[in-house]
């Protein structure tokens, strides 16, 4: 019985394999070799940030000249140049960007009620804007972690997620998904960030969050290139002339300002 079964299934498999091999020769379709090459160079995460269905349809559009290579935010400079060579045209690379979460609160930011419900930031945000006392800050349920196609965001529930800047490609999916809009795409060359998004007055921030910006203005005064401004009770880097000197970071009394050089906790 077993022998016959094995022979039968094996035989059927072999017969079908032969048929498929023959049919694939008959119905062979020659694909554009440029497309195959371009698909190989693209990240292959199908994140959709370019506006196409996936890397394959994006490469098809590149070949047909319907789009720009630099629509792909996840492409590094080298691959961009290679695609340019394949297409025989000069391609301007996009300035590489990484996502930065403009909040460092997490456990340092107090809760105003206990939330027991669907564990996504989106759902929590629907309940009076979230359970955090600070209505601007990170909720910490990790919607950005789940949406990231490059596995670049890690978190422990309740903490602010940590973005691995080596893996982050700047596709911007987390930016779109964050219900608090506190994730920003920042050019990769800037590493010092004021990680707070609260427009509350300094005294209030001091009560509810240990690392929130208390709008003391020390960073604005110390900045040698005048790249930090104080707007609506919140210090903000303009990311224009910043030289990553880190003086503001040393001066900040509540450690809101951080230098994110490499992934923390790796």
């Amino acid at each position: 019985m077993i022998t016959i079964s094995i022979i039968l299934l094996g035989g059927l498999g072999l017969a079908f394999a032969v048929i498929l091999a023959i049919v694939s020769k008959i119905f062979f379709v020659e694909e554009d070799s440029r497309k195959v090459a371009v698909v190989g160079l693209l990240p292959g995460a199908n994140c959709g940030a370019c506006g196409f269905g996936g890397c394959e349809s994006f490469s098809q559009a590149i070949i047909e000249g319907n789009t720009q290579v630099n629509k792909c935010a996840a492409l590094d400079l080298e691959a961009t140049k290679k695609i340019g060579i394949i297409m025989g045209q000069e391609v301007n690379a996009v300035e590489p960007k990484v996502a930065v979460i403009m909040c460092a609160g997490g456990r340092d930011c107090s809760d105003r009620f206990e939330y027991r419900g669907v564990e996504t930031c989106y759902a929590v945000n629907l309940v009076f804007g979230g359970h955090k006392t600070c209505s601007y800050g990170c909720i910490g349920f990790g919607d950005c972690v789940r949406v990231c196609p490059f596995d670049a965001i890690k978190y422990v529930k309740g903490d602010v997620p940590v973005i691995d800047i080596d893996k982050c490609t700047g596709c911007g999916l987390c930016v779109k998904v964050c219900p608090k809009n506190i994730i920003k795409l920042i050019p990769e060359k800037y590493s010092v960030h004021i990680r707070c998004a609260s427009f509350d007055k300094g005294a209030l921030v001091r009560q509810i969050c240990k690392t929130g910006c208390i709008s003391c203005g020390a960073c604005v005064r110390i900045c040698p290139v005048k790249d930090v401004v104080m707007e609506n009770n919140l210090a903000r880097t303009k990311y224009d002339k910043c030289i990553n000197c880190g003086l503001c970071m040393e001066k900040c009394p509540v450690n809101t300002i951080e230098q994110l050089l490499e992934p923390v906790g790796k």
């Binding site: 299934l9 059927l12 498999g13 079908f16 048929i19 498929l20 049919v23």
Partner: peptide, 9 residues
């Protein structure tokens, strides 16, 4: 097995 082959073709 049969259906998979048919779909492939």
């Amino acid at each position: 097995l049969t259906i998979a082959t048919l779909v492939q073709i």
